[in-house]
Design a protein around this nucleic acid. Sequence first.
DNA 1: GAGACAATGTCCATTACTTCA
DNA 2: CCTGAAGTAATGGACATTGTC
Length: 286
Amino acid sequence: MELGLSLGDASKSLGFLKDNNSSTNQDPTKATGFDFCMSLGLSSKENGEDEDTSAEDGNDDNQEETPLQLNLLPRLWSSDNGSSENGSSGKGLDVNRTPVAEEASSANKREFEGAGNDNDDDDDNALNTRKKLRLSKEQSAFLEESFKEHNTLNPKQKLALAKQLNLRARQVEVWFQNRRARTKLKQTEVDCEYLKRCCETLTEENRRLHKELQELRALKTSNPFYMQLPATTLTMCPSCERVASTPAAAAAKADSNIPKAIPFPLARPRFYPFPQAAHPNQPAAS
DNA sequence: GAGACAATGTCCATTACTTCA
DNA sequence: CCTGAAGTAATGGACATTGTC
């Protein structure tokens, strides 16, 4: 499925992306419902080229030379009226609100869409400390929705997401990287917990078997005739490899409908049910 | 076809920054 | 206010893949 289509789907109930001002000269055929606020009379690109690239290709050098400042904000997030809606606007920096973001991005030598964007402003960046730019709740929520659909992005999807959210493609890429890392970490924690429980179960089983062995030994010493039972009394169940006390019990157990595929002692849980990576022993969690 | 090389993308560990108790 | 912990955006390096010469 093409991400760009789904992101524009009104059924996603992400109303923050809805256009509330149609004054920009965006291509109406795209119908993304997304409104860029470009101050100073600069018009967004007509040909669908990447806006943020244009902003950066617009060259940090030039931005420094001129007091003009591109403001590629959706109306909701722009500094003039977005603060009441945006939960992150009260404190900290809005990623779309500070020119530092652009400077930091241009420092990245692997800027995805920045073809020919190797501005040599390292000296400028050296003077700036790295700024942590928080995404808005809406942006994070949108990225989260996308992540649920697919936890990796192809370049097209990345660009589409970046465009939708008014972020740089690199930011989207980084967000997905970090999100995958968080998922993996969570899964590791879940696995750890699972192994811990396995260990506890096995310890308990071991303790129980030791106790049973002691009881049998005690029984043997106190009543040696009682222990002279036929060898078939203790039978190993072929399915679960547990010892059954009597042949009848063992047979009953073997004939029962206990699924043999259930691993001992627990099915490994999954933290996040990726559609493409469902655990074979675990039904898809909700 | 094989090898060298560059471009590109992902993963991972780590850093740096923000937020909150 | 100060501080430490937690969360997370960003960075840099290692590695894999792919295309080109």
